[in-house]
Amino acid sequence: MSNKEPLFSTKNKKLLTNPLGSDNPITVQVLGICSALAVTAKLEPAVVMTISVMAVLALANVIVSLIRNTIPSRIRIIVQLVVVAALVILVDQVLKAFAYDVSKQLSVFVGLIITNCIIMGRLEAFALGNKPLPAFLDGIGNAAGYGLILVIVAFFRELLGSGTLYGFKVIPQAFYDMGYQNNGLMILPPMALVVVGIIIWVQRSKDKSLIESN
């Protein structure tokens, strides 16, 4: 096996790093917006959601890639759904048993991982046509790109909306005594959309190649 591809060849590295920037699932492909609005009021659920999506997406990518040659093409979407749904239920059950507080906060969103467009999108577009290792890296990369945006949005929403970061108070009491108020609007989902919009704006003004010409 002298011509074996090294683990981190340029191609594989790209699978990991592209989704963080120029091929980001949220800001460029505009997938997974729904959950990005829902879990970003605080940093903690955003981080847990990222980890859960990463686990589900990486594993689903590998499983689908492993069985890609056996899947009857007429029911391939159903097969993908079953794989994702089974993994999501597993994640939900494990969270309920080992991280009860977090699972309560995420509540319905864990179930909603199934409907996260990023997952079905990557399975259909990548895992069905690639070997397990690149599929695994693609899963990790896309989940990381998704998580990056989630964490950025959650950072601003929690800081401005609750005056805390990861549950710790960061805005000193003296500010509140002087009349500073948390912005309640930041806690509500529409502000997540506005923050995502600002991120897209900043990214496109830096990387002109992302701007569609029409």
């Binding site: 040659n69 056996t70 899947i71 009857p72 093409s73 007429r74 029911i75 159903i78 097969v79 079953v82």
Partner: peptide, 16 residues
Amino acid sequence: NTNSNTYTFLYASVMV
């Protein structure tokens, strides 16, 4: 033939 009806039915049943 992964596209035959028998195969598709079997595949779905075993998977479930």
